[in-house]
């Protein structure tokens, strides 16, 4: 017989975290779509003279603008990791304790072996998700760095200049372009797995994972909340 549990409502994701999430999702989508178009432009119209159209320039402009949004959004979130609530704190992304590693194993069991979990899973980011986001943050940084390095040659942007050292380091702009392009696929894979896992956890745990990124609330069994 299933036992009867009391659930409590917890305010997990504060507004800046939710705003970061959706701005980031939007920026990545725009960057991914425009980036793919820059990498492999398709034919739009050839009916007019070149001087009457500028669509490819516009696509690039949107990509660069979204790049700035992406960067600053990321910086704000990093700042929030130091001043936000305990679910948003920076140390939730770096597993250091034994319990943290046990939780990672636990989540892997639940997700991949699909067995029933026995231990407690964090109500915020579970420890595995936290670690993945920590690695993701570095890839975000890599993408911003290579992106602005490529941007340096066509603008007077300070951010471009600050990233220009990457080009000789990686062996020329062709290599930077290659890796910047390849990382597009990281985002595709990440989005696919991320969205699926949100649905999956919401489905099997019933803690309101999906809606939490809209309203900020999650639900947790009272008896597990002593932590």
């Amino acid at each position: 017989m299933p036992s009867r549990h009391l659930y409590r409502r917890i305010y997990v994701w504060e507004l800046p975290v939710r705003a970061f999430h959706w701005i980031n999702a939007l920026a990545i989508t725009v960057l991914g779509v425009t980036g793919a178009m820059i990498g492999k432009p398709f034919s739009v119209t050839y009916a007019q003279e070149a001087s009457f159209q500028y669509w490819y320039g516009t696509v690039r402009f949107i990509h660069f603008t979204a790049g700035y949004v992406f960067l600053f959004n990321m910086l704000v979130r990093t700042y929030w990791g130091f001043v936000g609530n305990r679910f948003a704190a920076w140390d939730k992304f770096i597993p250091t304790t034994k319990a943290a590693f046990q939780e990672i194993v636990q989540v892997l069991k639940i997700d991949i072996l699909q067995v029933r979990g026995t231990g407690a899973i964090h109500i915020g980011h579970n420890r595995l998700a936290g670690l993945i986001y920590f690695i993701t943050a570095f890839i975000f940084g890599f993408q911003a760095l290579t992106g602005f390095a490529l941007y340096a040659s066509m603008s007077h942007s300070v951010f471009g200049k600050m990233a220009a050292w990457v080009i000789p380091l990686m062996g020329g702009e062709m290599a930077v372009r290659q890796w910047h392009h390849a990382m597009l696929w990281f985002y595709v894979l990440f989005t696919l797995v991320h969205v699926y896992l949100v649905f999956y956890h919401d489905y099997v745990e019933g803690r309101g994972t999906t809606s939490s990124m809209v309203g900020g609330w999650k639900f947790e069994r009272d008896d597990l909340l002593d932590r």
Binding site: P41, S43, Y46, A50, Q53, Y54, W55, Y56, V59
Partner: peptide, 16 residues
């Protein structure tokens, strides 16, 4: 940056 075909690039008109 100094290519005389640059206008075609910005206009999205490419040799296929």
């Amino acid at each position: 940056d100094t290519c005389y075909r640059r206008a075609y690039f910005d206009a999205g008109m490419f040799v296929e």
